[in-house]
């Protein structure tokens, strides 16, 4: 465990873990202790989830903006685009049908 690279990389993992843990505790606390309105809570939970998504992609899956991760990043972004179209479309269509039933 004397290798400086090892220590630096381990620190990055621990940092990611700490951030992820914090971003988990906050939404749970919001729901349990219930400060603010429901709308605010939904916004908070969504923001924490998205932030944690980025944290985990960055620190655990090592996805970043560097050249050699470009293909993986493009792939993930393209997938998110298609998944967005499909899932938002699904919720839109079926929500619209539910309202009209």
């Amino acid at each position: 465990m004397r290798n400086p690279d090892f220590k630096a990389e381990l620190r990055a993992y621990l940092l990611g873990f700490g951030l992820a843990l914090a971003l988990t505790v906050v939404p749970f606390a919001v729901v349990v202790f219930g400060p603010g309105t429901q709308g605010l809570a939904i916004i908070l939970i969504t923001l924490c989830a998205l932030a944690q998504l980025v944290v985990q992609l960055r620190y655990f899956l090592h996805l970043d903006l560097s050249e050699q991760k470009r293909e993986d990043l493009h792939l993930v972004l393209f997938t998110v685009l298609l998944l967005g179209i499909m899932s938002i479309g699904t919720i839109w269509i079926l929500g619209n049908l539910a309202i009209r039933m």
């Binding site: 939904i42 939970i45 989830a49 992609l57 655990f60 899956l61």
Partner: peptide
């Protein structure tokens, strides 16, 4: 790690979202 990311969605939407 991917499964942990999916779990973020599950606890945010199914559990926390469900309780709101």
């Amino acid at each position: 790690h991917f499964l942990d990311i999916v779990w973020i969605g599950i606890f945010s939407i199914v559990y926390l979202g469900g309780l709101l």
